[in-house]
Computed example of a mutant assay.
Amino acid sequence: MTQPEGIAVELERLRGITEAGFARLDGRLEVVLQRTNRTEEDVRRLREEHDQDLAVLRAEVEALKRGRWPLPALGALTGLGGLVAAVLALFLN
């Protein structure tokens, strides 16, 4: 084998190794791309679920706010009732 033929054979061997490496890299990149797409879809779905849950919680909090007792008004009425009872007790005795 002459020197140029040896170089050609070695270059062909390197070309095969390079092609095999690129094929392996391409396969790995496809896997990464699939995982990335799946992750993006999962994140999008989780955001939608989160937004829905948040909307439900906000609606529940608003319903609780509307349904709560007017505690300051009840406190004022109770105090007024106590004052009236004390004044009546003072004058009736």
Rank of each mutant, 00 (worst) to 15 (best):
Gly27Ser: 06
Arg47Cys: 10
Arg15Gln: 15
Val9Phe: 10
Leu29Val: 04
Asp51Ser: 09
Gly6Glu: 15
Val87Glu: 09
Gly6Ala: 15
Asn93Met: 10
Pro70Phe: 11
Ile7Met: 11
His50Met: 07
Ala23Ile: 03
Leu92Asn: 14
Arg58Asn: 05
Glu48Ala: 13
Ile7Tyr: 04
Ile7Cys: 03
Thr2Pro: 06
Thr18Met: 04
Val56Ala: 07
Ile17Val: 03
Leu25Arg: 10
Ala63Leu: 06
Arg35Ser: 09
Gly67Thr: 02
Arg35Gln: 10
Gly21Trp: 01
Leu83Thr: 09
Arg44Gly: 01
Val43Ile: 13
Gly16Lys: 15
Ala85Glu: 03
Arg35Pro: 01
Gly16Thr: 15
Ile17Asp: 08
Gln52Glu: 09
Val87Ile: 12
Asn37Val: 03
Ala89Asp: 11
Ile17Met: 04
Glu12Leu: 05
Leu57Val: 05
Glu60Ala: 04
Asp51Asn: 12
Thr18Lys: 05
Ala63Gly: 04
Val61Thr: 08
Glu48Cys: 01
Arg38His: 07
Gly79Met: 15
Leu11Phe: 05
Val43Leu: 12
Glu5Gln: 13
Arg68Tyr: 03
Leu29Trp: 09
Arg24Trp: 00
Ala20Arg: 15
Asn37Gly: 09
Leu33Gln: 02
Phe22Glu: 00
Leu77Cys: 09
Gln34Asp: 13
